[in-house]
């Protein structure tokens, strides 16, 4: 943890209306500059809720979230310029083409003209979508939609990138392209907060992970070190199952 803290989460709790169990239960966590941080947990653990609070969609309740020293609520508009988000559910206009979607979301980040065009072209080629740019998103396969969904969140080269299950439902080829790409992003200085259900993927990608369940953090640390500290479990998946239990989640 040589790098300075970029995101500081203090005493974060979140109750959804009409539920008496907290979705997030008093979490504190520091995320460092330029690390790939994994949020791992079973369905309903609270991963999406944490990401929503970090990018300012929800208030942190009694807790406090600071991003680059700025308060997640009062400095929300400044933070918006430095973060990028790839939502868990595809967030695109289905009747627009992939290109038009990217143009619109790029414009909303304040990008325009030649710069935007170059960025879009670069990423379309990188993710093998250049031939489909002018097709409507409704006609895309699930994996193609995921890739456009991903590009839309990083066109403006954010300092901090939130990825909510970016590799769900896509083939091995696409997954490899995405994981390689995230490594490259890290090399350019981006901080990445990432959720996943794939332990082996997280082991390969993340500098640190937090295993969460029922809104609580059960363990934090480098994935290899976590396994080393608990030698009875051969890998992260076994440790994960031990920590979160084998019951099915709702």
């Amino acid at each position: 943890m040589a790098e300075p803290v970029i995101i500081r989460i203090e005493d974060l709790s979140k109750f959804y209306k009409g539920s008496d169990e907290p979705a997030i239960d008093n979490i504190s966590l520091d995320i460092c500059r330029n690390e790939i941080f994994g949020l791992l947990g079973p369905n309903g653990a609270g991963k999406t809720t944490i990401i929503s609070i970090l990018c300012g969609l929800f208030s942190p309740g009694n807790g406090k979230v600071t991003i680059e020293g700025m308060d997640s609520q009062s400095d929300r508009n400044k933070i918006k310029h430095i973060i990028g988000i790839v939502p868990q559910d595809i967030a695109l206009y289905p009747t627009l083409t992939g290109l038009e979607n990217l143009q619109f979301f790029g414009n909303m980040y304040g990008l325009r003209g030649k710069l935007l065009k170059e960025r879009i072209d670069e990423y379309l080629v990188r993710f093998g979508l250049d031939r489909f740019a002018k097709k409507r998103v409704t006609k895309y396969s699930g994996g193609m939609k995921r890739r456009v969904n991903l590009i839309a969140g990083l066109l403006h080269k954010p300092k901090i990138l939130f990825l909510d299950e970016p590799t769900v439902g896509i083939d091995v080829q696409s997954r490899n392209v995405i994981l390689d790409f995230l490594h490259e992003l890290k090399a350019t200085g981006t901080t990445i907060i990432y959720t996943s259900h794939y332990m082996e993927e997280a082991e390969r990608l993340c500098d640190r992970v937090a295993i969460i369940d029922s809104g609580k953090i059960l363990a934090v640390g480098n994935p290899r070190k976590l396994v080393e500290e608990n030698p009875e479990y051969k890998n992260l998946e076994n440790l994960f199952l031990e920590l979160t239990g084998k019951d099915l989640r709702d």
Binding site: K80, I85, P87, I90, A91, L92, G110
Partner: peptide, 13 residues
């Protein structure tokens, strides 16, 4: 419903 609004709400607009 299509989710685009969530994205827009995290954008500087």
């Amino acid at each position: 419903d299509e989710g685009s609004l969530i994205r827009i709400m995290t954008q500087p607009v």
